[in-house]
Design a protein around this nucleic acid. Structure first.
Lengths: 249, 249
DNA sequence: GCCTTTTAAAGTGCATACATAATAGGCCGG
DNA sequence: CCGGCCTATTATGTATGCACTTTAAAAGGC
């Protein structure tokens, strides 16, 4: 018997459960950027104490999905346009590495799994945007997982999730068609082992996704008026958000 | 009267303090891979409760520096050869991106800062290996920081630290000379804005570091007899020490 | 004497308690 | 009617306690 251990861990992995639930809720935009995540509420909802909820929030903060400020309620991260741009840049390099490692290396079964996933995407094309976006994201994560490189898997997952957040923040209506055909083209190129081609394709694919998402540095789809006011404040005055109590003077 | 000052910041970031301390101890090889890190001991050493120590360990685990198994004492991660290889692969792509973004963009002050850092490396050349390794690592992190891309900074820092871990595990005696000259060459190319050149140089630099570190997939420099026995155990028997009562041969 | 079984020590998993900082709403003066 | 201080509420930061698991050691049998 091989020394490889099975990785099952249902051993009451409460923190992991909460993280997965929140991640999914975030990428499906059930939790929009800026949504508050009080420890008590999370704990109660998942039937655990604040201790566990807090650990989950810490984890998600480390992944860049949650913003954690001292003595303040945790909120879903609201990536700035520049951060989104940076994330996409990193993502491109990482995913180029993924397909470079994968080109010509995939088994029949793996290729079939990828095809099946894109079929799912196809089926969900007329469903809600949230599901389409999630499936599209999971396609990229699935690719990463096939590299068997834990660090690549982790990083690609993280940037992919963060890009979803970006979509929540900046995107215009999602059109998934082109994305799906590009996914199919990538699978095909991977199967044929055309390394250079598939790297280029992945690059263009992510570039188009980024361009669709990051049409302009503006467009903070209003949810918090501070967001709207930020640029104006920057322009006109030195102290944008002024503290109310400067009374002592 | 309670308001008064707006304390800028470091409001008792206990977790961060412990993380930094442990990170540094790890990259200076004061804590070798496999070293146990009991929560109690950490808490006592840093004057905090287990709760805080535990959070720090969770954070470091998320960064891949610490291995956290359920109901077991946390230990400094022992990267496998394959994981180390994967880490270096990712690192190369990320750092190529760093220098691509930086080429021709650095201010005089930034270039001076880089030069100063390499001077430090030079000064430490005859000192202990641990310091040389730390400084060499911090050079790469310093570069990443100049991109102003939080995610790039975080990822480069993480992979750089993990590569240090790898050195702890696999390396032969450290020779820092070539590394330093390469660092200087990279600064020069960055200043001159030779984007392609500097990307190639960074690639070769990291490649040589990797090759020096990962000479062969074997050579677990003994620190724990379990490590020595592992390959033999795999070959001959399923369980090296204490086979529980799993009769399954 | 060596291997197995028993048992105590040590450590983690988790919840809860308490102190402190932030926030929202009420009260009062203008 | 509005704006600012004050307080009650809320939420976080941290420590501690208890139950359960693992680990190490001691005891006992072959």
């Amino acid at each position: 018997m091989n020394s490889a251990k099975r990785q099952r861990e249902p051993a009451s992995d409460k923190v992991g459960t909460i993280c997965r639930a929140l991640r999914r809720a975030i990428i499906e935009q059930a939790l929009e950027p800026g949504t508050k995540l009080p420890e008590d509420a999370l704990g109660e909802r998942f039937g655990v104490s604040r201790t566990i909820a807090r650990q989950a929030l810490g984890q998600l903060a480390a992944e860049g999905l949650v913003e954690l400020r001292r003595n303040r309620i945790a909120v879903v991260e609201t990536p700035s346009w520049q951060e989104a741009r940076n994330t996409f840049d990193v993502r491109m390099e990482l995913e180029r590495l993924v397909v470079r490692q994968l080109a010509g290396q995939l088994s029949k079964a793996q290729l079939a799994e990828l095809q099946a996933h894109v079929d799912q995407e196809d089926a969900a094309r007329n469903g809600p945007d949230a599901v389409s976006i999630r499936l599209a994201t999971e396609f990229h994560i699935l690719l990463a997982q096939m590299t068997n490189s834990p660090i690549l898997i982790r990083y690609v997952s993280e940037v992919a999730y963060r890009c979803c957040l970006t979509l929540s923040t900046f995107s215009r209506p999602h059109s998934s068609d082109c994305g799906i055909t590009e996914h199919r083209a990538i699978i095909d190129a991977l199967a044929k082992g055309r390394t250079e081609d598939v790297m280029t394709m992945m690059h263009h694919h992510l570039d188009s996704v980024a361009n669709r998402a990051l049409v302009a540095p503006t467009k903070p789809r209003t949810r918090d008026l501070v967001d709207i006011l930020a640029p104006y404040a920057d322009d006109g005055e030195a102290a944008p958000h002024k503290p109310k109590r400067s009374a002592a003077a």
